[in-house]
Simulated scan of single mutants.
Amino acid sequence: MADFRSSVIIHKPISEVFHYMASMENVPELMPNVVKMEKLTEGPIGKGTRFKESRSVRGNTVNADIEMIQYIQDQAFTTRSNSNGLITEYAYAFHEIEEGTQVEMDAFVKTSGLRMKLTKRLIVKMIKREDGFQLEYLKEMLEGKKEDS
């Protein structure tokens, strides 16, 4: 069972939505704490593609290795990040619907070590606060809507 999940409908074609997300170069626009995403492997993006993520956490830069562990063009992809024993997997599913594209995300957080296992609930809460709104940001970016506050 996912530690948290999200879903959104975007009024754009599935191929456009999938490409925007799967390219990974747009991650800093969708996850504000991510300051840089660098592709480490050659060739087109697919299963096995690796990235280096740099993220700002409480004023410090934390790096994580990201790997595309599943990739089905215009349907689904899953990324796995590993940062000092904290493994986070984001599984994205894309569905063509009458209004455009429905995107669903399931997030899985795996901890290792006694200290992390004991604080997993707090870790999940922190990750959800940092990354939980990425689909809403995706919708804003692709539909050109910015909240007027």
Rank of each mutant, 00 (worst) to 15 (best):
P32T: 08
L114D: 02
S149H: 13
Y20R: 03
E42R: 13
E89L: 00
K36M: 09
V27Y: 05
F51V: 08
V109W: 07
E140G: 11
I10E: 05
V8I: 12
S23A: 05
T111L: 03
M116V: 02
Y92M: 04
M24G: 05
K52M: 07
F4K: 10
K117W: 12
D148G: 03
I127F: 02
S83T: 15
I97H: 05
M37Y: 14
G113S: 05
D148P: 04
Y20F: 15
A2D: 13
G100L: 06
K117T: 15
V8C: 02
I66G: 00
R5Y: 14
T49V: 07
L118A: 14
M126Q: 14
L122N: 08
M37V: 12
N84Y: 07
M68E: 03
R129L: 04
E89T: 07
K12H: 03
I127W: 04
K128L: 07
R115F: 11
E104S: 09
D106W: 03
I14T: 12
S112K: 12
D148A: 04
V109D: 09
S54W: 02
L135S: 03
Y71C: 01
I66C: 10
P28I: 01
E67Q: 11
E16Y: 02
T78P: 00
S56H: 05
T78V: 06
G46C: 09
S83W: 01
A22F: 13
V124P: 08
K47F: 10
E16K: 00
A107S: 11
I66R: 04
F4W: 12
E98Q: 15
G132S: 03
S54L: 13
I97T: 13
E89R: 01
F108N: 14
S149P: 05
V8W: 03
D65Y: 00
L40V: 09
V8E: 07
M116Q: 12
N33F: 02
E67F: 03
L30F: 09
E99M: 04
D3K: 00
E67R: 03
H11Q: 14
S6A: 15
V8P: 02
P32S: 13
F94M: 08
D148C: 00
V109G: 05
P13Q: 11
M68F: 14
N60K: 15
